[in-house]
Amino acid sequence: MIVKQNQELYMEAERFITRCYTELGKSQEIQSRLQAIEGSIQETSQYVHTFEELEHGAKMAWRNSNRCIGRLFWDKLHVLDKRDLSTPNEVATALFDHISYATNQGNILPTISIFKPQAHGKDQVRIWNHQLIRYAGYETENGIIGDPHSILFTKVCQEMGWNGDGTRFDLLPIVIQTSGNPPTFYALPKDIVLEVPITHPSLEAFASLDLQWYALPLISDMLLEIGGIQYSAAPFNGWYMGTEIGARNLADLNRYNQLPEVARILGLSTERESTLWRDKALVELNIAVLHSFKQAGVSIVDHHTAAHQFQLFEKQEKEKNRALTGDWTWLIPPVSPATTHIFHQSYDDRMVTPNYYYQAKPYK
């Protein structure tokens, strides 16, 4: 029998293997695989996923991600197995390869790179960045330059010896830590990062705002859990929904706060809120983002299309007799949410595994 401290791991493995192999049409192999896992846990207090288990487990985790509106495409995830890499240099090279592969010259491929799992509760690989591609934020005498969200991490990078150019759109380095060793930073090669200048389809003056954004949203600080095994470094990406950039990154007061500038370009009076100048500016900013990405040949989806796609996902899950989970507060788009079916529904927000989980920042 498995000793008491490993019983929970085996139970998690049993739940995952049973569901995974059933979905893959390999039910006849469940018992033999569980016997092998039981033996491994007895000997080493852990077990190793096959690539097939890793691949389908990562896809299941996307399918179970309560906050993601783009789950219709969960089974199209490209899984890159990087569990054999140990050194920061190897990890950095793999991350650069991920960026190039997933960017795919603008035809974004949903992709995840999975590195060594935790061993005895300790990280073997940890990426300090929230996103692999992100702009720096600087506190200056003349106010904040760049992305306010990045101020703390920018300071951490500077303390490590990194220096940016001090512009609004400096690419932060990637910070990697392996097996508890001191972190190492790597500058992002600019030739692998696709960035999109933001222009408007009918307002030429919009270009004077000198706005841009990167093509690839690549989350890199979440923990992937599959069958009781925890992968503390498993960066993943899809493609952008336009409102993520146009209604949040560039519009939020505590981010780039560009709505007053857009209103100026539009000639709107900002003296009274009742003129709804913010709403008008917000719509035009989102139009500009969608236009610019499409003009550059970069994958992006508008929030209405994304909501329709989520409705198809809901239908598919019902047909498969799988319980649908979701976080309503994240699923509704930040622009015109009441025009989508999501706004008028409720969702079960319980966490189902496999899944992605937030981790404490290692530099706090």
Rank of each mutant, 00 (worst) to 15 (best):
G143E: 00
L285D: 04
N181Q: 15
Q31L: 12
K116L: 14
N129G: 06
D210V: 05
T305W: 09
T22M: 07
Q118N: 12
L276R: 12
R272E: 13
G297Q: 00
M11C: 13
Q28L: 11
M11W: 13
I332Q: 12
Y138T: 07
S232A: 15
G25I: 04
G242L: 04
I226A: 00
I226C: 02
A288Q: 06
S86F: 10
T111S: 06
N254A: 12
I41G: 07
E14A: 08
L80S: 11
G121K: 03
I30C: 07
T305S: 14
W239H: 01
S45N: 13
V298N: 04
V301R: 09
N107S: 10
Y363T: 02
G143H: 04
V262G: 00
I265N: 00
I30E: 07
E284D: 09
S292F: 03
G121W: 04
Y186I: 08
T103Y: 02
V196A: 08
I114C: 05
L85S: 00
L9Y: 08
A102W: 06
T184K: 14
A36E: 13
L290I: 14
F96A: 09
L172E: 09
P235I: 05
T353W: 13
T339D: 14
R264T: 14
Q230W: 05
S269Q: 07
Q295T: 13
T275P: 09
P354N: 04
A119C: 11
D302F: 01
V125D: 06
G161M: 00
I342W: 01
A323I: 15
Y358H: 07
V283L: 15
I108R: 03
Q309R: 11
I226T: 03
T184V: 14
H49G: 06
W128I: 09
M11H: 15
T22W: 10
Y101W: 09
V91Y: 05
L9N: 06
D84L: 10
G39C: 08
Y101Q: 10
E319C: 07
Y10A: 03
Y101M: 09
V335D: 06
L268I: 00
G326F: 05
L188I: 10
C157T: 07
L80E: 11
